[in-house]
Write a protein that binds this DNA or RNA. Structure first.
Lengths: 194, 194
DNA sequence: GGAGAATTAGGACGAGTGACCTAATCCGTC
DNA sequence: GACGGATTAGGTCACTCGTCCTAATTCTCC
């Protein structure tokens, strides 16, 4: 069973390093140093670097699914669940200002590389999109998926500008604007039903 | 004078390849093959890869400045100038869906690399921000710079999701939403003045 | 047309890359 | 406590990377 633990540790470290430095920029040597294992030893656990990437994406899919599931379970109102999403920007502000959004930056990098794992990486967006659409639908909004994509788009835009300008005040302002937009859309949805 | 032409060609090709494949992923060999010159020969024109990056950023600053200047000169109304900005998303749609936004993706990559040229790359955002703020101010909007950053943020968010989902219809929908938002902000500005 | 500078061709260098291998070591099972 | 599969250590492989040289070539100007 020790092997499984080592493998999980490699994936966890690779996950962090892929985020912080980018997939291609991160070398086996770097991961090995962080995990404290011999460099050539990766090939007992993974056949290639692409296989590590696939494992990292799978790990992110699992952890994101778990996060969204906990929100569905522990947060009562759909409106508050939307705020939970928006608040990611504040909770991870420091990391976002240095490394961008892990989902968006990976998808963009893999797209530039024309990497086969691009579509798998986009699956992370799907998780958030579906979660958000669920909440908008529960709030009685028509075209819930379009609203979900719009909110996703805003979080990505804020992440990019946060990385560029590194201004926490700007991020806070856009978060407030997102909350306002959500409330307006909900109001529009209930008005349409009346 | 032949040297200057070769240098300019190297910069132009590097510009394209840095955009399409990313800065770090693009090698001298790749650039050399595209320019049809000997690989080791770069060091007559540039002392290092970072120097090529600096030249590419300078080139983008110049071409962006020229583009915005032409808009200021040839487009009469500030409102139409804002539309010109939004329309970049349609005009460059195919490239954006494959490689993302050249400004945003470079800034994010350099941030991950903790590269010294990061701040210079962010200067490209400044050009657009100032241009947009100028137009909002001319339209009588208060907090023109905040509105400019918001529009910039949206274009970045759309670029990231366009790269992820590669759906032209989604891009078109967000462009329309951006136009609506602009009109509402202008209306708000004139109402406040009345 | 010849001197001298600008430019190019064509490697070579050490370091680092992902990939691969084999021998040693660990550890649960009988 | 010896066996056998699971795991690790550590080194090697071919290759590419950015960088750097030097010799040849081209161009400019007297």
């Amino acid at each position: 069973m020790r092997g499984a633990e080592t493998k999980a540790e490699i994936i966890a470290v690779a996950d962090r390093l892929f985020y912080q430095g980018g997939f291609e920029h991160t070398s086996f040597a770097e991961i090995a140093a962080a995990v404290n294992i011999a460099r050539g030893n990766f090939y007992y656990h993974f056949k290639s670097k692409d296989e590590i990437l696939a494992a990292v994406i799978a790990r992110r899919m699992a952890s994101t699914t778990a996060l969204l599931e906990s929100w569905r379970r522990e947060i009562d109102s759909p409106r508050a669940r939307l705020s939970a999403f928006v608040n990611i920007l504040a909770a991870n502000g420091d990391k976002i200002m240095r490394y961008g959004c892990p989902v968006g930056s990976l998808a963009t990098e893999l797209s530039k590389l024309m990497h086969a794992a691009r579509e798998a990486a986009v699956g992370l967006f799907d998780l958030f999109r579906d979660f958000l659409a669920e909440q908008f639908a529960a709030l009685g909004c028509a075209k819930a998926e379009a609203l979900a994509l719009h909110l996703l788009m805003r979080s990505q835009g804020v992440a990019v500008l946060a990385t560029a300008y590194r201004d926490p005040d700007y991020v806070a302002a856009e978060m407030a604007a997102m909350e306002d937009w959500i409330d307006r859309e909900i109001a529009r949805g209930t008005a349409a039903r009346a």
